[in-house]
Design a protein around this nucleic acid. Structure first.
Length: 566
RNA sequence: UGGGGGAUAGUAUAGUGGCAAUACGACGGGUUCUGGCCCCGUUAUCCAAGGUUCGAAUCCUUGUCCCCCAGCCA
């Protein structure tokens, strides 16, 4: 039976592109681009853009998506970022083929274009300093004033600009400006700066240049040079579109891409601005760009997220123009759904409570069969050892259980998963603290494997690990980095860092794992039954010292019940 | 008091003149050797007010609210 693909409702951008294709607007070509500035690490918001741009290219016969580094500001950009960005895009599963570009590769062409503009008397060298330019720009409600240098002759502009390039002038002493309209209601059109002097080596062009083009001049021309058909960007560039179009119109290039803006991604309990993420890294609030609590792709990867989950998430959130904040719960849903299907189940006890099975022989141990993944029988089964002394989760025992607590309690019988029914006979407490430190139970040999021949039922099934066979590991329990849904929302002057969740990381230094986990490979993912999804840390886990990161908890109905009971 | 955008359930996204749809969340129930997964049910008259129309989320009018713009950042 051939599967019919579900009706995909098109977002407004895909609708525009389909319309353009129908009208043969770009001779049937679809060329998009993902244009990051290499000044930081990619985050889940970039993934939205990457999935959009590469996704659209993939949906069309012959469609391509370019990866272009928008590297026009050497004061902020570094090769380290270039590399991380490339590996993140690749990790997401996208391929730019031979279409890897750098805006800095166009510096010569861009220079020629600006000379053209000067020759058309559409650009001039301005000697006003930054403060003066701001002053002359006017305000939102009042028009700007024309610069006294606006009327310089073409010849003088050409000479001055050439000397700017030659390095005759200091940083900030002169700029090249477009000659548009100082009274425009759109501030971007009030003679925007096209080039500034920056005596600073560039990560790719070295010391070749001491003048660097601005975004507005570079971006549209880079798009044009590459033959981009649809230039997709975020909402804040909407005001720049008239300038994007002005530059391309004045220069009469043969390719004039269409800029289309969409809303950037916001996620609850998360900050997304590069500035804020950098602040978290620089201030030591997290361990780095790839801290598993960070919304960066490297952080999510280390946390255990899969590319499939992230791409599914990007498909689900859609594309629109209104500002919105997606619920973090949706991202968590996506990773759970993916991992539910593929992660092998294992048993691990995070906070061990010792259980002695009094009627189980001292020196005996046996191997029991356990299913690796109930969602996928092809993943097979494994053996797990059982013996007289076990660990169960501290949370799975209560001396004085409230209503609806189905787990172990004095006199109560529960099932140990894939093993036996056990009954709690005695509770040993620390004399000083009163804390429960050990349980004495009996087991029913007839329930081997987990089923009672007499058909009696048990309300709970607990995970467990044999004490003698257990492997120890460090387990890092991650939670939301911020305790409020909108950490950005603070009043004026309020620091977003005050919303940091002090409990975003809890380290369990010696969890007990079933022995099969010995030597687990970094990056591999498991479901710890009844607890959540965990992955072996890519950086800190070693052969002798396993380190697991919690990717996500399982949905937990019991905590809800417990909470509602107070 | 300028310009550019945007308002559909708790959240996100469809619907663009004909029964407001889907997903997540929440709540209730079923099932269960994971209190997981899975299954079932509940959860909005579409920013407001007028108007056009047999019929409006959709078209018109007038408002209201929210976001972005005064970098030699992108």
């Amino acid at each position: 039976m051939p599967e019919t693909s579900p009706p995909v409702s098109m977002d407004f951008i895909r609708t525009i592109i389909a319309e353009d294709l129908k009208n043969n607007k770009n001779e049937g070509r679809v060329v998009t681009r993902f244009p990051p500035e290499p000044n930081g690490y990619l985050h889940i918001g970039h993934a939205k853009s990457i999935c959009l741009n590469f996704g659209i290219a993939l949906e069309h016969e012959g469609g391509t998506c370019h990866l272009r580094f928008d590297d026009t500001n050497p004061t902020k950009e570094e090769t380290e970022y270039v590399e991380s960005i490339m590996s993140d895009v690749r990790w997401l599963g996208f391929d730019w083929g031979e279409h890897l570009y750098y805006a800095s590769d166009y510096f010569d062409q861009l220079y020629e274009y600006s000379v053209q503009l000067i020759k058309k008397d559409k650009a001039y060298v301005c000697d006003l300093n930054a403060d003066e330019i701001r002053e002359y720009r006017g305000t939102l409600t009042t028009p700007g004033k024309e610069s006294p240098f606006r009327t310089r002759s073409v010849a003088e502009n050409l000479d001055l600009f050439q000397r700017m390039r030659a390095g005759e002038f200091e940083n900030g002493s002169r700029v090249l400006r477009a000659k548009i309209d100082m009274a425009s209601p759109n501030l971007n059109m009030r003679d925007p700066v096209l080039y500034r002097i920056l005596h600073m080596p560039h990560h790719r062009t070295g010391n070749k240049w001491c003048i660097y083009p601005m975004y507005d001049f570079t971006h549209c021309l880079s798009d044009s040079i590459e033959g981009i058909t649809h230039s997709l960007c975020t909402l804040e560039f909407e005001d720049h579109r008239p300038l994007y179009d002005w530059v391309l119109d004045e220069l009469d290039v043969d390719c004039h891409p269409q800029q289309i803006e969409f809303a950037r991604l916001n996620l609850s309990y998360t900050v997304m601005s590069k500035r804020k993420l950098l602040e978290l890294v620089a201030g030591g609030y997290v361990t780095g760009w790839d801290d598993p609590r960070m919304p960066t792709l490297s952080g999510l990867r280390r946390r255990g997220y899969t590319t499939e989950a992230i791409r599914d998430f990007c498909d689900r959130i859609g594309i629109a123009k209104r500002d919105s904040t997606v619920d973090l719960a949706l991202l968590e849903y996506c990773i759970r759904e993916d991992l539910n299907k593929r992660a092998p189940r294992v048993m691990a006890v995070l906070r061990p409570l010792r259980v002695v099975i009094d009627n189980y022989p001292e020196d005996r141990s046996e191997e029991l069969d356990a299913v690796n993944n109930p969602e996928d029988s092809s993943m097979g089964t494994r053996k797990i050892p059982f013996s007289r002394v076990l660990y169960i989760e501290q949370d799975d025992f209560m001396e004085d259980p409230p209503k609806k607590f189905y787990r172990l309690a004095p006199g109560r019988e529960v099932r140990l998963r894939y093993a036996y029914f056990i009954k709690c006979m005695d509770v040993v407490k620390d004399k000083e603290t009163g804390q429960v430190i050990e349980l004495h139970c009996t087991y029913d040999p007839d329930t081997r494997g987990g089923d009672a021949p007499d058909g009696r039922k048990v309300k709970a099934t607990l995970h467990w690990v044999s004490a003698d066979h257990a492997v120890e590991a460090e387990v890092r329990l991650y939670d939301h980095l911020f305790k409020t849904p909108d950490p950005d929302a603070g009043k004026e002057g309020m620091d977003f860092k005050t919303h940091l969740n002090p409990k975003s990381l809890e380290i369990i230094s010696s969890a007990k794992l079933e022995p099969g986990l010995q030597g687990a490979t970094p990056g591999s993912r498991y479901q710890f039954e009844r607890l959540g999804y965990f992955c072996v840390d890519l950086k800190d886990s070693t052969k002798n010292r396993l380190v697991f990161n919690r990717t996500a908890t399982l949905r937990d109905t019991w905590v809800k019940i417990a909470k509602s009971q107070g």
